[in-house]
Each structure stands twice: as structure tokens, then as C-alpha cells.
Simulated scan of single mutants.
Amino acid sequence: MSFLEVIVLALIQGLTEFLPISSSAHLLLPSVLLGWQDQGLAFDLVLNIGTLAAVVIYFQKDLRNMSFAWFNSIKHKQTTQDSKLAWWIIWATIPAALIGFFGKDYIELYLRSGYVVATTTVFFGLLLWWADAKAVQIKTEYQTGLKGAIFLGCAQALALIPGTSRSGITITAGLMLGLTRNAAARFSFLMSVPIISMASGYDLLKFILSDQYVDWGSLMLGAGVSFISAILCIHVFLILLNKVGMLPFVIYRLILGAALFYVLS
């Protein structure tokens, strides 16, 4: 991989992983428009690790409080807002974990196409617009509830379909539940930690069992760029969220979907 490819792909991963605009749709563009080859398992792995590190560090205080509260809820039977939130994140992780484990091969074989990505980019963009326009937006993430967490988990499972956008569909589901934009985004980001961790662990196992050539320089550069761009993206997104709403992202998704249909036709 060239220096330019490493920088561009890492920036795409870092900037789009946590925005509701579909990272898979954007990662498709270099191959469609520029003819770039697949970057390989090792590079995918370090990009995911970079974005995982970004969300863990950004929400380190929340994650630490939730972890302590969760252990106390087991050991001392103490229930707090943080322990409830931790349990809800666990429950919300189960649907995507199960479907990802049992359906990954099917998804890779039948759904990873340009037209699927273009269609889901447009459809779930419109669904995000509808949810944002109709949302009550009165609840915090601490008012999600078990049923709400499972609903959000099922929404996250839909993100296994390329082009859906994990953050986009989970924020959409959060808005449907009456969460504020900020609360929906925060729950979405916290949900990303276990699911990205599991995906990275799976890719790491495949990498260990493979005999793939490793360009350590490119991997470290890619991980660093994806980490920095992701942590900046999370910070700016949470600041702008209540000011601009979801409409700019919806419009962007519609333009991106139309562009994908055009270049694929």
C-alpha cells in the first residue's frame, strides 16, 4: 500500500466510523473510483483498533464508572444508574454478536455489494431523518431501560448490512425511543466498545492463523491516523449535534447514495 492509500483509508475509517454516514459506503469509494485493491485483514484490524482506542479514551470516565458499578451490582447487589447502563450495554451487544457470529459468511457472500451499500445508505438516511423529525427527545441514556436496550441492540445488528451505518441506525433507534440526540449518540458510542472489541478479536484470530505479509510501518501509521481522526470526530460531533441536528448528515447520505448509484451504473 502506498503512503497516500494508508492516510486516505485511515482518515475515512476514523472520520466515518462514529458519524451516521456509513463507513462501509465510504470505504467502497476508493476501490470504485480509483481502483484501489482491498487493504487486507491486517490493515482492517489496526484501523478498528485505532477507532476502538479513540472511543475508549474519550469515554474512559464513563466506562470506568460503569465497570466499577457493574462489578458492585454483582458482588454487593448494589444498583445504580451506571450499573443499569452497563447491563443495558451488555444486553444491547447480544443481538449483533449472535447475528455476526452465525451470519457473517452469508453477509460477506450476498450483501457486500455496491448496490446494497448504495440502497442502505439512502434508505437508512431517510429513516434517520424521519426519526429526528418525529422524536420526542426527552430521555437521557440512563432512562433507556432493558426493552429499549434490546431494541437498540437489534438496530445495531442491522448495521451488519453494509451501508447501514452502525452509529446511524443506533442513533435512529435511540431517537425513536425518545432519547435526546446527545443521549442517543452517547449510548451508540458506548455500545460500540464491546462490538468493535469482539470484531477486532475475531480479526486478530484470523490474522494470527494466516500467513499474510505485514508492513508494520503502514499498520502503525494507519492505526495512528484512524485514532486521531476518530477521537476528534467524536468530540466535534457531540458539540455540533444539538446545534445542527441530523439533517446535514441525511442530505450527505442521500448525495453519497446517489453518487454510488451513478458510478456503479
Results as ranks from 00 to 15, higher is better:
residue 2 S to M: 11
residue 3 F to W: 14
residue 5 E to D: 06
residue 5 E to A: 08
residue 5 E to S: 12
residue 7 I to E: 05
residue 8 V to M: 15
residue 8 V to W: 13
residue 9 L to T: 15
residue 10 A to W: 07
residue 13 Q to M: 03
residue 13 Q to G: 03
residue 15 L to M: 05
residue 15 L to A: 03
residue 18 F to L: 08
residue 20 P to H: 13
residue 20 P to K: 04
residue 21 I to M: 07
residue 25 A to M: 10
residue 26 H to F: 02
residue 27 L to I: 06
residue 28 L to T: 13
residue 28 L to S: 15
residue 33 L to I: 15
residue 37 Q to W: 00
residue 40 G to Q: 00
residue 40 G to Y: 04
residue 41 L to F: 09
residue 42 A to W: 00
residue 43 F to Y: 05
residue 45 L to V: 05
residue 46 V to G: 08
residue 52 L to I: 07
residue 54 A to P: 12
residue 54 A to Q: 09
residue 55 V to T: 12
residue 67 S to E: 03
residue 71 F to K: 07
residue 73 S to P: 00
residue 73 S to Q: 03
residue 78 Q to G: 00
residue 78 Q to V: 04
residue 79 T to Q: 03
residue 80 T to E: 02
residue 83 S to R: 02
residue 84 K to R: 14
residue 84 K to Q: 07
residue 87 W to C: 04
residue 87 W to D: 06
residue 91 W to S: 01
residue 92 A to F: 07
residue 95 P to V: 03
residue 96 A to E: 10
residue 96 A to C: 10
residue 97 A to E: 04
residue 97 A to N: 00
residue 99 I to P: 14
residue 104 K to E: 15
residue 109 L to Q: 13
residue 111 L to V: 02
residue 112 R to M: 09
residue 113 S to C: 11
residue 113 S to L: 12
residue 115 Y to T: 14
residue 117 V to N: 08
residue 118 A to L: 15
residue 119 T to K: 05
residue 125 G to I: 14
residue 125 G to R: 13
residue 128 L to W: 14
residue 129 W to A: 10
residue 130 W to E: 11
residue 130 W to S: 13
residue 132 D to H: 13
residue 137 Q to P: 11
residue 140 T to M: 01
residue 141 E to L: 15
residue 142 Y to R: 10
residue 143 Q to K: 15
residue 144 T to L: 13
residue 145 G to V: 02
residue 150 I to L: 13
residue 153 G to D: 03
residue 156 Q to Y: 07
residue 157 A to I: 06
residue 157 A to V: 09
residue 157 A to P: 15
residue 158 L to E: 13
residue 159 A to D: 12
residue 160 L to G: 09
residue 161 I to C: 09
residue 162 P to W: 04
residue 164 T to K: 04
residue 165 S to T: 10
residue 171 I to K: 07
residue 172 T to I: 11
residue 172 T to L: 13
residue 176 M to I: 10
residue 177 L to W: 05
residue 178 G to W: 01
residue 178 G to K: 01
residue 178 G to D: 04
residue 179 L to M: 15
residue 180 T to C: 12
residue 181 R to P: 12
residue 186 R to H: 01
residue 186 R to M: 02
residue 187 F to W: 14
residue 193 V to H: 08
residue 194 P to G: 02
residue 197 S to V: 06
residue 197 S to Y: 09
residue 199 A to I: 02
residue 200 S to A: 14
residue 201 G to A: 05
residue 201 G to L: 10
residue 201 G to P: 08
residue 203 D to Y: 04
residue 211 D to I: 03
residue 212 Q to G: 03
residue 215 D to N: 06
residue 215 D to L: 04
residue 216 W to C: 00
residue 218 S to Q: 06
residue 220 M to S: 09
residue 220 M to N: 06
residue 221 L to H: 03
residue 223 A to W: 05
residue 225 V to N: 06
residue 225 V to L: 01
residue 226 S to W: 08
residue 226 S to N: 08
residue 227 F to M: 01
residue 229 S to H: 01
residue 234 I to D: 06
residue 234 I to Y: 02
residue 236 V to L: 05
residue 237 F to L: 10
residue 239 I to E: 15
residue 245 G to Y: 13
residue 245 G to L: 08
residue 249 F to P: 11
residue 250 V to K: 10
residue 251 I to T: 14
residue 254 L to G: 07
residue 255 I to S: 05
residue 258 A to E: 06
residue 259 A to H: 10
residue 264 L to M: 14
residue 265 S to Y: 08
